[in-house]
Nucleic acid binder design. Structure first.
Lengths: 218, 218
DNA sequence: TAGATTGTTAATCGATTAACAATC
DNA sequence: TAGATTGTTAATCGATTAACAATC
């Protein structure tokens, strides 16, 4: 039985995967932990520790095979899986999500899209017809749905979650500000909080500005 | 001179801010570190340590004033500032960003939007006219621009960054996969990697699935 | 074999948690 | 005053880094 891997390590896996994909695309065949570390802005020690959570993928003296390591990390992440998912909300954000992402290469398949606004219902997104949101219940109870992706304003989310949870959905990709995992503790939720990210940027900009001022006027 | 605050603490500040805003909207006037901790899924110790990085905002025996603390954190984050920003890319993602976010409450002001696709140039977004991307250079050199927000596909990003950097822009909100801070180390970059988030969700879903299987078939 | 680089154990560092005196 | 809760110091825990034997 494998030990639990810390969330810090997990969150680095997609970055390893991306950088390895790039190296592979550039025809690089072997990579050392030192080189990978410099790409990741990390230490070689960390790279080796991270990878050895999952197995010994390298060869002493030679380093790691780029294509092998990329494939291994893809397997660890489960990118070949097909988690069936539905998207709630076909506004600008929902459309951005639906059109931007290669779900099939990320372990998911987007099967259906639901939207409240009648003007958007019936339009097509990536070959998927946008359905009216009063068909959610019927759809979820007649299809295999693993994951719900929420791209709608906060106020409409809570009631929707209640319904989705009751219908058995436990995995959420959440762009709203509603705190799903506090209400339903047995869910898996990945939050994307765009405004948190902007606020952090704001802080960091100011932090530097202040440190520059302090250094010039000491 | 104040000590440097760790990035972990910084990234919690927007969450404190959000939850305090909610409490305030619900008419709550006082809050203890214990209650705040339960909302944040943290310990009371952590809450007090976090806040005391910036000052003693509480009163022994009483707790924290919700509105005061919210205002203080807003000030720490710098949400009353007006960092002038431009958005590059008016596709679905760019439009989602432009329309979803209250820049004015997050320390920013969106002044201009640029787009390569001629079909989108000239359309309006939040009252801002979308300009053709060959006007970027002229605009940035004649206006005060603090921050660039990048909502375009990776391949077009590197050349664009080179130009923006040369024009003096050092702060970036980056949705692309191009690693800005590796090439330009004196930049401040907040990355939003949607596909990383999805991959992490994929891992976590599989992780649970496996642990359930192990527990039922030991 | 010599050089390079891994896998892994040990040391260090920093973040989180606990404890408690100060004080409202 | 007694009860509650902060601010802050000390203890713990876990993640990162360093070191080095194993080995390609």
């Amino acid at each position: 039985m494998s030990k639990v891997v810390s969330i810090q390590v997990i969150r680095r896996l997609p970055r390893y995967y991306r950088f390895l994909s790039e190296l592979e695309a550039n025809g690089v065949e072997q990579v050392s932990s030192t080189r990978l570390a410099s790409i990741m802005s990390a230490t070689a020690s960390q790279v080796r520790q991270d990878l050895n959570c999952f197995g010994g993928f390298g060869r002493q003296g030679c380093g790691y095979s780029v294509s092998e390591l990329r494939a291994e990390i893809g397997k660890i992440l489960g990118l070949d899986d097909t988690h069936h998912s539905i998207l709630l909300g076909a506004g600008n954000l929902g459309r951005a999500i639906a059109t931007h992402l290669n779900f099939e290469h990320l372990g998911f398949k987007l099967d259906a899209i639901f939207e409240k606004d009648h003007k958007l219902v019936g339009t097509m997104l990536r070959g998927i017809k946008v359905l009216p949101d009063d068909e959610i219940e019927n759809y979820v109870s007649t299809h295999n749905v693993d994951t719900a992706m929420l791209a709608l304003p906060k106020d409409s989310v809570e009631a929707l979650i209640d319904k989705l949870y009751e219908l058995g959905i436990r995995n959420y990709w959440n762009f709203s500000h509603f705190d799903i995992s506090r209400k339903y503790v047995d869910t898996i939720v990945e939050n994307v909080h765009l405004s948190d990210s902007l606020m952090t940027l704001c802080y960091r900009i100011n932090e530097r500005k202040q440190s520059l001022e302090t250094h010039t006027n000491p």
